[in-house]
Structures are given as structure tokens and as C-alpha cells.
Design a protein around this nucleic acid. Sequence first.
DNA 1: TGACCGCTTGACAACGTCGTCACCGGCCCG
DNA 2: CGGGCCGGTGACGACGTTGTCAAGCGGTCA
Lengths: 343, 343
Amino acid sequence: MNDVAAAAGVALKTVSRVVNNEPGVNTATAERVQAAIDRLGYRRNDGARTLRQGRTSSIGLVIEDVADPFYSGLSRAVEDVALGHDYLVFTGSSGESPTRERDLVLAFCARRVDGLIIVPAGEDHEYLTPEVDAGIAAVFADRPPGAGPETDIVLCDNSSGSRAGVEHLIAHGHRRIAFLGDSPAIFTAQERLRGYRQALAAAGLPYEERLVAMGPGDQARVQADVERMLSSPEPPTALFTGNGRMTVATLRVFASLASFAPPGVRHGGGAEPMERPALVGFDDFELADLLKITVVAQDPVGLGRTAAELLFQRLSGDDGPPRRVELPTRLVDRGSGEVGPGS
Amino acid sequence: MNDVAAAAGVALKTVSRVVNNEPGVNTATAERVQAAIDRLGYRRNDGARTLRQGRTSSIGLVIEDVADPFYSGLSRAVEDVALGHDYLVFTGSSGESPTRERDLVLAFCARRVDGLIIVPAGEDHEYLTPEVDAGIAAVFADRPPGAGPETDIVLCDNSSGSRAGVEHLIAHGHRRIAFLGDSPAIFTAQERLRGYRQALAAAGLPYEERLVAMGPGDQARVQADVERMLSSPEPPTALFTGNGRMTVATLRVFASLASFAPPGVRHGGGAEPMERPALVGFDDFELADLLKITVVAQDPVGLGRTAAELLFQRLSGDDGPPRRVELPTRLVDRGSGEVGPGS
DNA sequence: TGACCGCTTGACAACGTCGTCACCGGCCCG
DNA sequence: CGGGCCGGTGACGACGTTGTCAAGCGGTCA
């Protein structure tokens, strides 16, 4: 900018005015400055600008994993809202590690992002208190934070969604319904389990420990749990899976159990030691339509958009009490809940 | 930092030394300073730091769409490499718009990112020349740039992969193979078409315009093209789809054409006006294994990792001639190429 | 004629950090 | 006893911007 000013024979401040389209610059002068800018290939240094102005026009987004379709949808929505406000987005994946979540958040804070959108991996968010006190806005998405500052929160209505999914199975005559969920440490897993229990209770069905398995979503674990349940004396006739990864893993288990009939096709005989159970999954996924899997659909885009919109309201001065938004889920019936007893 | 210095009764510079773990500070002094830092909840302003130091320890990543699994895999890989170097990542989706690509890149440049990884949407990258001259490193991934500065480039071996996929179909007896590709303006679409033609030529098969359809990957377009081809007098017995979205769209078309037999199951009669054609897709996708779709798998993670590694080599001083890396593809045979004439 | 106005322009400090250099006191060595 | 060295500390400017304030200038109005 110094060079531009020298080249155009004006003061620094005049160049600044031209660059920022501030009024009060003679047209001829402005043209001369613009010419110098073009000639020298000058571009404003936004780093210095933000230092001077005290806001960076950037936000930080911490999610579990960009490569997970659920979070990448959320991510894209956040990005779109941010770009609409001329904000840039730092993205980071925590990979479910509380340490990495914290490191990322603090790195973003050191960069003085104006706001944060966080899908928390950890339980303790006290580390955020000084940052929030320092004026950084924060919104939690998908899961509520642990102990820490009061912030806006955007969630899916996990328990109602889960309950609706399980009720759908019950309505089709299922009485022994298994629940496969994420690690109990994860909020959404707990909530979905809660919805499952509510649905059972409302229908007067017993809650059986042996039909509930929670843990990481890797194929081996799911395979073991599903096989164990299905080969037990009184196997479940339906499965409810607690997230998209579990649903897909379960489908792979089904595929690996060659004795299953294809979906919708029944075995000939009456005895069905290994008939393919009904399945309803929490969270929609690509190709679920082709595979005809009934799901409780969340709205990752809505989650991201809402979180970003709340954040920008805060950034534009709203300092009302913290809000907690719960987005509804939607049961998408594709038929996989119908197989089995009741159909 | 000023406040901390005052609170600890030392000079600014001493605080700076403590914060940066610089040697030459008396242990007692350091403790006093550290206490003041903790008490005041001070955190270094990395914005000011980068201004002073001339590098921002951040890179910009411009892709087509974070929500697309191919790019989100790439994105995650870039992020992991960057975090390994203590770099932060700005992410932006261009949505195939050259203007938005350019705006994003220039916004990142104004923020003085140290480097850029770009999946180009546009054809003209002259706008990058001043930035690269100014010292910003750039690497193009997945597609080569149009006119502009010489930079490192990381691609998939599109034509070979495509050729291998089509040869697989030919090897299974197919003679009329349709090609459904992305818009011809897109580099990868052109390359994959080239591979298709090479395979045909090598097998002595004619190239027929009527069997080639290129354009956007929306369901309606694909539906129209596939239906037109399949209902033509001499319909293709196999389809080769040019990217994951096309493959999925084509599967949906198959599902909508109720007259098709399920995969692997043949119609009873000899005449087969609408037998389900064989299908091989470029690009793997989740659940392709369950749907038993043969694909030419790319390696989005490898693409992202390689691009990031090249970038960091540049950032650490490597100024050798521009490099062009082509990553191999891999044919994953799941049986969907076998249906039809030869099987 | 002089006070005042609007328009244009510029000088200067400040944002928060770090690199450079200088300073101070104590100690060793000749 | 004097010079040099060293560990510890601080003053100051610079990075590239922008906000504040003031000044120059020509013209208008009382």
C-alpha cells in the first residue's frame, strides 16, 4: 500500500480510501490510484486489516469428520451461510477426540475467529469460558456441550425421532426389537436409546438388556453384536440402528449371512431361525432409497444452517438469553420395517 | 500482552519471550509472568503474530462441494496433513462456478494464506499469476488449471482408468457400450471419454455418437438419456458411467424401470427388449459393494494427501520445476460388468 | 472583508506481536 | 584493578492497515 501511494503520488490514507470505496475522493485521484494498484498488482492485506479492526470476518467450524456425509452436509450449509455474510470458514475435524476438539477450538480462538460452531466431542467445555468472555460467539450443534459457558445449541429431536422409528416397528407387529447404538458416552446415542425405551414402554413391551448393544460403529463390533442377537434363543425380529454408520454396517452383516432371503421375499417354511429381520435406521443415507431402508431422517443441512444463522445473529449484536433449538426428524417409510411378524 | 506485562511488572518483550518459550528468561520471572497470563486468561493473538512474521500458517482449500463424498474425503486428507504441520485450513466450495472459485481464492489470498489447494472449476487461472508471483504456493488437484502460472498438479489417471473399465465390459462380451459422462467442459469428463474411445478402438469397435451422452449429473438428465438409449433400436448392452453421481443416478433409473429383472437374474424368454444392462462406474461410492456394482475406484484421500504434501514441500523451500503426479485407479470387480451378452 | 462551509487530502497513532539492539550487573581472567 | 563476557531484561521500531483529527483550498454569505 505504501508502494501504491508512492507510485500514485498520494498519501497512504488516500489509497486506503480508494481500496475501501470510501467517499470523499476526487474521481481523478481515485483513477490514478486505481491505475497504480493495477500496475503493481496490489491486494489489501486482510490480516493487517482485521488486526486494526478487531474482527476477522471468519468463523471456525469443528466437526467430528468432514468425510462423514452427515457432517459434510452440515459443513456445506455453514459455509453457504458464512459466505453470504462475507465470512470465511476454518474447518477442522476432531475425530471424536476431546483433546483435538479443544486444540482446534483454541487454535481458532488464537486466530481470533469471530465465532465458533462446534460439534462437541468432549464432555468438558470450561476451556471455552475465557474465550466466550473475551467476546467470541459460540454455537453448539448436533450435541450439547458439557460443563462450560452458556451458549446457543441446535439439536435434532433425537428421542422423538427414535421413538417414532421404534413405534413404526411396533405398529408392524414387532415385539422383540433390538437397539444398536453408538457409544453411550455420546449424547445422541443416549437420547436415541431413551426414545427406544419410551416407545417400548408406551406399548407395554419389556426392555431387555440383551437386545441392546452400544459401542463404536466399526464393522467387526456390529457384526459380532448382530450375529449374537440373531442366533440367540429368542432372536429379535427387528433391529433399530442408532446412526447411519450402524445401519450400513448392519446391512453388510445381512449381506454376509447368506441364509437370508432377499428383502421382502419370505422363506417357504413356517420356522424361520434366521429370517432377515426388519430394520429401521436413524439417519438417512445415500442409496437408502434404492435399498428400500426405512429411516428416521435428520436434517444435517438444517442443523448447519440454523447454527450458522444463530451465530450470525449473535455476531450482529443479539445478546438475548441462550437459545436451544430442536429440529424435528421425519420418518421415511421405504418398507424395511414391514418385513417380519406383522406383514 | 500489555496487561500481562503490567500485571507481572515486566516489559512487553519478556512476556513475549515466555509465551514463545524463548530461552534467556529467569525461571522466577517466567513463573511470575505465567501466573499473570493464567490469571488474566491471556491468549496470544495469532493475527498480529502472522502480520509481524509474514506467514500465516494457514492454507486455503477450494473444492467443488464439501458435501460430495469424493471431495470430503480429499478435504479430510488435506486437513490431516495440514494439522500435522500445525497449519489451519480455510475451506470453500466453488459449486463448479468459476466466479465463486476465483472469489474464494482471492479472498484466501487477501487473508495471506501461505498456500492453496484448488480443484479448479474455471478454465482461466491468469488471476492467480500475481498471487503466485507474490509468493503464495498453489497446487491443483483432480483437474489441471487453465491458462495461468505453472504449478504442481495432482490428478487421477482418468483415461487409463476409464479404458480399464470399458475393457472390462468388452472382455465380458459387450459390443454396444454407452458412455454417460459429466459436462464436456470438465477435464475429467474429457479424459474419461478419451479412455472409453481408446478401449473401443483397441477392440476394433466403432465409436457411436448416439451411445455417448454428456452433461450435468442431475437425475432428470440421466433418466432421459438412459431411457432414450435403452429404447433405441439397437440398445447398448452395457453402460459406463463417468462419475459416482452418474452411477447412482443410473441405478435409480434402473430401479424406476420396473420391467428389469433384478441383477444377475435373467428374463425367461429369449427376446430381451429391456433387459437390465451391465454397468461399470467410474469412482467408487459407499454401498457399491452391497449393490454389487463394479467400479473404477479413484483415491480421493491419496489425491488430497499428495496435493498437501507437495504443497508443504513448496512451503519448506522446494523451488524445483513444477511437478505433475498421476495417481493410478483400481478396477474393483463386483460382478455388474458380467451381466448381459457374455455371461 | 472575514467567518464559515464543503470538499479533498494528509499526518499520525494505534491494533498486538516480534526482531534488533542496547543496557545493566556480576563474574572471570589477565 | 580493568576489560571482556554472559545471562537477563527492556526500549523501540516495524509488519500493513484504518480511525481521528486537522489543514488547505475555493467559494458563499452576512
